[in-house]
Write a protein that binds this DNA or RNA. Structure first.
Length: 383
DNA sequence: CCTGACTCGC
DNA sequence: ATGCGAGTCAGGG
């Protein structure tokens, strides 16, 4: 209680009273309830899925060892690196500070050079699903048949939540096999799980805080933002945007939010550095507001020492004044990204408080269970 | 117990 | 040399 007046003064001085009183403090009770409610998972299906994975992993091991000419620990990147790049003589694509890199990107480039590579890629996917999800989630099922995560509200630099023991914010969804895990989360009898997610929240936040008319118009007109961006960047009518153009525009949109460089964008979508540079230049010439914002937000942060979100959440970034180019560049990307990611976090937290209260009042049997950065999962009575 | 490499999510 | 997290495993202390 000695700290209370001191901290209250700090809050007021920094203009964060509203953030605290209207968002963070009321959110605590919402998170407490969500954690207590937990979410139901189909234990029997999870067990069967784990058994299936075990069989496939075992087949995969046999195949890998037949190519390697002996057993070794496939999970050891050191042992795997020695096998691939010394014993089998494959060309090392990338190095880590301790040896050869064997990550997914490297394996992707080598997959046609030796039949052991696709087997290792399969092995990695299967063992990830088995250990982290099939076995990992099984251990977390409580007596009530539900999984109760812990939401951390004080660990991220941007204001997002994180989820631990288990992490329910990184349940697989992208691969077909991975998506099977997600399907095992089920509603309690008589209910359905409703998954409500924001569409492109970070780009909408960017359009708003950058005050970019072209991007705001695209959203107001309810057009697909990646298609609209492709039309702008490639100078073609919306109807003539090809799937490839849309994919590239999507990567640029994505990259802008993270403060991407032409190098990384080129790597990401497989075009030359010069093409990537041209994409970015074209993008910024069409979204002038975004271009101005990118410079302004970094300059502001350098001057004040911090960036802030729409609701005044701060992140101090002293590295903006670093004399080391890489350190400084990294800080500039943070200064650019934090207001976007952080404002999106502010908004969904506000939505959570309102959803929790509205449900309690109007639909008391419907329960908010999970938040995954831009989506809310609610357990609702059927009908 | 910690770090690094890797892979999962948004 | 694209932002924010967490869990698992190997390997070392």
């Amino acid at each position: 209680w000695h700290l209370r007046p001191v901290l209250a003064g700090e809050l007021e001085k920094n203009g964060m009273e509203r953030l605290y009183r209207q968002i963070e403090l009321p959110l605590c009770r919402v998170l407490y309830r969500m954690e207590n409610r937990g979410i139901c998972i189909d234990r029997e299906q999870l067990r069967q899925f784990g058994d299936m994975l075990s069989r496939r992993i075992s087949d995969c091991e046999t195949l890998i060892f037949s190519y390697s000419g002996g057993e070794f620990n496939i999970n050891s990147t050191r042992q795997l690196g020695e096998l691939l790049f010394e014993k089998l003589g494959l060309p090392p694509v990338k190095k880590t500070k301790t040896g050869y890199s064997t990550n997914a990107e490297v394996l992707e480039k080598l997959k046609n050079k030796h039949p052991i590579i696709p087997a290792i890629m399969d092995y990695r996917m299967l063992t990830k699903l088995k250990s982290t999800y099939a076995d990992g989630l099984m251990k977390e099922i409580r007596e009530d048949g539900r999984i109760h995560t812990t939401f951390q509200n004080l660990v991220t630099a941007t204001g997002r939540l994180s989820s631990t023991e288990p992490n329910l914010q990184n349940i697989p969804v992208r691969t077909d096999l991975g998506a099977e895990i997600r399907k095992m989360f089920i509603p309690k009898p008589g209910c359905v799980l409703v998954d409500a997610d924001y569409s492109q929240i970070e780009l909408r936040v960017l359009a708003h805080i950058a005050g970019d008319d072209a991007m705001r118009k695209a959203f107001c007109d309810h057009v697909d933002i990646h298609t609209a961006t492709a039309a702008q960047v490639f100078g073609v009518p919306v109807e003539e945007v090809t799937p490839l153009q849309r994919r590239h525009a999507k990567a640029v949109n994505f990259g802008i939010v993270y403060g991407i460089s032409e190098f990384s964008l080129a790597e990401d979508i497989g075009v030359s550095r010069y093409e990537a540079r041209a994409y970015i230049d074209n993008y910024l010439n069409n979204y002038r507001g975004v271009k101005e914002y990118m410079h302004k937000v970094v300059a502001d942060a350098r001057e004040k020492g911090y960036t802030e979100t729409l609701y005044g959440r701060r992140r101090y970034i002293p590295e903006l004044k670093s004399s080391n180019f890489n350190v400084r560049s990294g800080a500039e990307r943070i200064a650019l990204n934090t207001p976007i990611q952080g404002t999106a976090a502010d908004l969904i937290k506000l939505a959570m408080i309102r959803v929790e209260n509205a449900l309690n009042e109007k639909y008391p049997d419907a329960k908010l269970l999970l938040q995954v950065h831009d989506e809310l999962i609610v357990e609702c009575p059927e009908g």
